[in-house]
Simulated scan of single mutants.
Amino acid sequence: MKVPECEEIYIGGDFNGHVGRMNDGYERVHGGRGYGVRNRDGEALLEAALAFDLAIANTFYQKREQHLITYRSGLHSTQIDYILLRRNRLKSAKDCKVIPSESLVSQHRLLLLDLTLKVQSLNKSPKPPVRTKWYRLDDREVAAEFRERVVGKMIEMGDMVGMGVNECWSEMAMWVRSVARDVLGETKGKRKIEKDTWWWNEERHLEVDSDNNIIMTDKCSSCGKFVASSDGVKCSKCNTVHHKQCVNVSANSKVGPKWYCKTCKRKPTYADNGETSGDVPRLAEPSSLSEEIKLLRSEINSLRKDIMSVISSTNTELQNRLEVIEERLSKLENQHPLENPTQSVDINKTIERL
């Protein structure tokens, strides 16, 4: 055949021949899973398939009889419809079977072949034209060499007599382009320009306001979403940004120059200067009277907890000591009973007072 090897070949139809179940002598083109008994027409088909190196796809898959029979007429059933393809492309075929419930034409059943084809996508985008690196003229050494060669050509053209303006212009333009290619070089435009993005990180985001001005915003520390400059508040202590809605601040309210998030409000800050005396730290100046009251209240609560812990530990220690003394005293009384019982009463009172 005069079909190029790069092209696919698929032949299907009614060959009116029986290739049979066995593949003796035709193992390359017959899979050994056919139907019926081979006849002369089937043998001629196998000879042609072997000559052109075509595989009969029907015979390479293990199927039930009803999925092999392609022709049925009354009580007569046979396999006479086949699909042929290149033997080296047999791996691309995934399955080949007959659908018994569908009739393609009268008494013939539908034969299907599942294929996996590799399709190469064509690059439709045009290639960028080759461009001269004119920006290299900013280099003084390169610009000097370019100027020297162009001026030399202009001096040579000054002696030309009898040339028209268009001829001189065309020759000079061709010379300038040739010198630019040699001195400056060319580019195909495939190199990606590295943009200056030193200010960009994962926490930054771009936003466009009503005047089409780009505004850089941060992420909300509460919900993790980006915050617009008009819809956020910033903590004066930890510099975290929050949505007004996330921190229960009305959208129309104006926040003062000093605003603290919930975390910073729970942790009182202390002034670290030379005016404080002793080991007791002094509270830093809050932004309002209500914040000052909250800070003082939290300090009083922490001091109360410290006092109660000290009192409870001291009380437990004294009670343990008292129990030890009472135990020792009871042992002494059992060993040496007192003659005057009033003394024991006085001692008991003294112990209770302690």
Rank of each mutant, 00 (worst) to 15 (best):
M1D: 12
M1H: 14
M1G: 13
V3H: 04
P4N: 13
E5F: 02
E8P: 10
E8V: 11
G13E: 13
V19G: 03
G20T: 01
R21M: 07
N23S: 15
D24N: 15
D24R: 10
Y26I: 04
V29Y: 00
G31D: 00
N39L: 10
N39V: 02
R40W: 07
R40F: 10
D41K: 06
G42S: 07
E43F: 04
A44W: 06
L46P: 02
A49K: 00
L50S: 14
D53R: 06
A57G: 11
N58M: 00
L68C: 08
S73L: 14
H76E: 11
I80A: 00
R86S: 01
R86Y: 03
R89Y: 11
K91E: 12
A93S: 09
A93R: 09
C96H: 02
V98G: 02
P100M: 13
S101V: 10
T116V: 15
K118H: 09
S121I: 11
P128G: 10
W134D: 06
W134R: 08
W134E: 02
F146P: 00
R149D: 10
V150G: 01
E156V: 14
G158I: 04
D159G: 10
V165N: 08
S170H: 11
E171L: 12
E171S: 09
A173V: 08
A173F: 10
M174V: 08
M174T: 05
R177F: 10
S178R: 14
E186W: 03
T187M: 06
K190C: 07
K192P: 05
E194D: 15
K195V: 02
W199D: 00
E207H: 11
S210T: 11
S210V: 09
N213Q: 15
M216H: 04
M216C: 15
D218N: 11
D218E: 08
S222D: 09
F226T: 04
A228L: 13
S229T: 05
C238E: 12
C238M: 01
N239G: 01
V241C: 02
V241W: 03
H242N: 04
H242I: 00
N248W: 04
S253H: 09
K254A: 13
V255L: 03
W259T: 09
Y260T: 05
K267Q: 15
T269D: 11
D272N: 13
E275S: 13
S277W: 04
G278P: 01
R282A: 07
P286K: 09
L289A: 06
K294W: 06
L295S: 09
L295G: 01
L296Q: 11
L296I: 14
R297E: 13
R297T: 04
E299K: 06
S302A: 15
L303M: 06
K305N: 12
K305S: 13
I307F: 12
I307M: 13
S309P: 00
V310F: 02
S313G: 03
Q319E: 15
R321V: 13
L322C: 10
V324L: 12
I325S: 12
E326W: 10
E327H: 08
R328M: 10
E333L: 08
N334T: 09
N334H: 07
H336T: 12
Q343R: 14
S344I: 07
S344M: 12
L354V: 11
